[in-house]
């Protein structure tokens, strides 16, 4: 009798567990197991033209980088993941800049003063562009920070990375090397 009762509670617990698991599965957005990794595009689309100001107030046009491999890294000062990947992105920039890699850190929805204050404490060798109205972020469909796009020399968006990335890791480095090789 006792064994029977125990068995019935085990069945109940199992059913409960399955129900909770289904509920959990339904509420967790699909990440495709790709957060922080590089997503390649089945159909690479051209980067739309845009112009943004840098920290010195000079207007930078995206089309001026046509023919070069470019990384656009969307970030904000309040984003811990952005701060975490800044150092490795800086190393990648230092390593490949002379070989033709262009990198822009595109700050979203923050003032020049806020960004300058932040960079005083946390300097970066990479040029920073200001997207105060999130115009370019919206155009590309940036949902999270950090998000980066890797654009080939033909101006096609080849990869997207959502979340923090180790830019000195083998995956990032080999993508950049390959795209720079295609350029040559």
């Amino acid at each position: 009798m006792r064994a029977k009762r125990r068995m019935s509670w085990e069945v109940v617990a199992l059913v409960g567990l399955i129900l909770v698991a289904f509920q959990w599965g339904a509420s967790v957005p699909a990440q495709g197991g790709r957060v922080g990794a590089f997503q390649s595009y089945a159909k690479p689309l051209p980067l739309p033209d845009f112009s943004l100001e840098d920290l010195q107030g000079k207007t930078v046009h995206s089309k001026d980088s046509r023919g070069k491999v470019m990384i656009l890294n969307f970030w904000a000062t309040w984003c811990p993941g952005c701060r975490a990947e800044a150092a490795s992105l800086g190393k990648l920039y230092d390593r490949f800049h002379s070989k033709g890699l262009v990198v822009f850190r595109v700050n979203t929805k923050e003032s020049r003063e806020t960004v300058l204050r932040f960079l005083e404490k946390d300097p970066s060798p990479i040029p920073v562009l200001l997207d105060e109205k999130n115009r370019v972020g919206k155009m590309l469909g940036v949902w999270v920070h950090p998000t980066s796009y890797i654009i080939d020399c033909k101006g096609l968006i080849q990869y997207r990375a959502m979340g923090t990335v180790d830019w000195t890791g083998i995956e990032g480095v080999s993508i950049v090397e390959r795209l720079l090789g295609e350029k040559g």
């Binding site: 957005p29 790709r34 595009y41 155009m139 590309l140 469909g141 949902w143």
Partner: peptide, 21 residues
Amino acid sequence: EEHEGLEVIWQDAQEVRDFYR
């Protein structure tokens, strides 16, 4: 207006928000 710009292709939609866009 909120989703103008780079087009989302079905094969390239990975995140829930890509599907919404």
